[in-house]
């Protein structure tokens, strides 16, 4: 019964709506009137449940091709996870190490990881792009990006 993917999606959405509703019913409302901070969230929660139930009973109209598009090769999945991990590192280090160094590392390593083989070009771009952006932001526009370990 749960085979069609839209039914799984529907159940997930119902779970989300229930979670949202639980929080909504726990909201305190200070206004005396009938419409408070909790009115809209409650309506939204119930609406989402209603829509998800309708979705559940819809006919499965997915073509084989569309199903295929959801299947991601293991190889690609690894690449995505890797890029995600590199991005986490980027965020984590941005304010600690500074914009230029972190961005350089990110562009260089991420491009390399995704299979870019021209190392010289890679490094040159990875240096130039952040430096230009940083100078524009910090020196011309007066919007200070984190300088981190570099002295300027």
């Amino acid at each position: 019964m749960l085979k069609p993917v839209h039914r799984k999606a529907s159940l997930f959405l119902i779970a989300l709506a229930v979670f949202y509703l639980i929080l909504a019913y726990r909201l305190e409302s200070f206004t005396a009137g009938p419409i408070g901070a909790d009115t809209m969230p409650k309506i939204l929660g119930w609406l989402l449940i209603l829509l998800s139930v309708i979705l559940f009973f819809f006919k499965d109209q997915e073509t084989e091709e569309e199903k295929q598009s959801r299947r991601i090769a293991k190889n690609d999945l690894i690449k995505m996870a890797g890029v995600l991990l590199l991005t986490f590192c980027y965020i984590f280090l941005l304010e600690r190490v500074g914009f230029i160094v972190t961005s350089f590392l990110f562009i260089w390593l991420c491009s390399w990881f995704l299979g870019y083989q021209k190392h010289v070009k890679n490094i040159v771009t990875a240096v130039l792009f952040p430096v230009v952006l940083y100078s524009l932001f910090t020196f011309m526009l007066g919007i200070a990006l984190p300088s981190g370990i570099l002295p300027f």
Binding site: Y90, S103, I107, L114, Y116
Partner: peptide, 15 residues
């Protein structure tokens, strides 16, 4: 090239 473009789009969005 794609790998480079991907890195740059991510950084662009981040900044």
């Amino acid at each position: 090239p794609r790998p480079m473009l991907i890195s740059m789009v991510i950084m662009f969005s981040m900044i």
